[in-house]
């Protein structure tokens, strides 16, 4: 079986600063993999290497068997199959929610206006913001914006989805709405790679949890093991800090 995502010996430097120090990892179709770890551990960089928003310094990235780090590959075509959700939502502020979800369908997939709108409305309804089609991003709450961003990615019918700390910029009471949508996606069998600090979500939804620290994968396994019974001292220390923030 071809892996949905495969990373081989991935290294990334920012100048002198080595952020990724040889990552090997796979995500299989239909799997939900959560990447956890302290800030600065390289989790977001790893995620951004998958669709080449960051160019790896060394190593290879395969998406559905295609090497995306190959200079000859059509990266735009690869990205079409990978949905991405950002911490800061990154909705287009000059377009309504509906237009945000339609624009890439129209310009990238060359879908007709009618079809794009139908798909957009479906997806906005699916993530629970169907009533906000005509709102500009600035008129929406963070939770609503993030759900529009998820709808925007889903409207492209991606094979897999990347989530880069999707709830970290949200007010606490809005986190649940976004996690509910993500949980629904997982149940539908979407392949998901999720960088997150939400341990409850990772424990309940993920098929695998990857703990990163200092640019390496420290621990990789089922949630019950990595979160429930971590083998490594670093994982234990991190989880303790996250689960008991006041010591």
């Amino acid at each position: 079986m071809t892996h949905a995502i495969e990373l081989r010996d991935l290294h990334k430097y920012f100048g002198q600063n080595q952020v990724l120090k040889g990552i090997d990892m796979t995500v299989d179709p239909g799997q939900v993999v959560c990447v956890i770890g302290p800030s600065g551990s390289g989790k977001s960089t790893l995620l951004r290497c998958v669709n080449l928003l960051e160019e790896p310094t060394r190593g290879k990235v395969f998406v559905e068997g295609v090497e995306v780090t190959d200079p000859d590959v059509d990266i735009d075509a690869v990205r079409r199959r990978i949905g991405m959700v950002f911490q800061q939502f990154n909705l287009f502020p000059h377009m309504t929610a509906l237009e945000n979800v339609m624009i890439a369908q129209r310009r990238v997939l060359k879908r007709g206006k009618k079809e794009s709108e139908v798909v957009a409305r479906e997806n906005l309804a699916k993530v629970g913001v169907g009533a906000k089609c005509d709102a500009l991003p600035g008129q929406l709450s963070g939770g609503q914006q993030q759900r529009v961003a998820i709808a925007r990615a889903l409207a492209m019918n991606p094979d897999l989805m990347l989530f880069d700390e999707p709830t970290s910029a949200l007010d606490p009471e809005l986190v649940g709405d976004v996690l509910t949508v993500m949980r629904k996606l997982a149940e539908e069998g979407m392949t998901m790679l999720v960088v997150t600090h939400e341990m409850g979500f990772a424990r309940e939804v993920a098929d695998r949890v990857v703990f990163m620290d200092g640019g390496v994968v420290v621990e990789d396994g089922v949630p019950a093991q990595v979160i429930g019974d971590p083998r490594h001292e670093r994982t234990r220390a991190f989880l303790h800090r996250v689960l008991h923030p006041e010591g």
């Binding site: 928003l53 950002f86 890439a104 310009r107 492209m156």
Partner: peptide
Amino acid sequence: PKGQTEAARSLGMSATRAQVT
């Protein structure tokens, strides 16, 4: 913001398309 270009590119838009749109 740089995130705008990143969002556009992650949807499969080319660099030119992202600039224009």
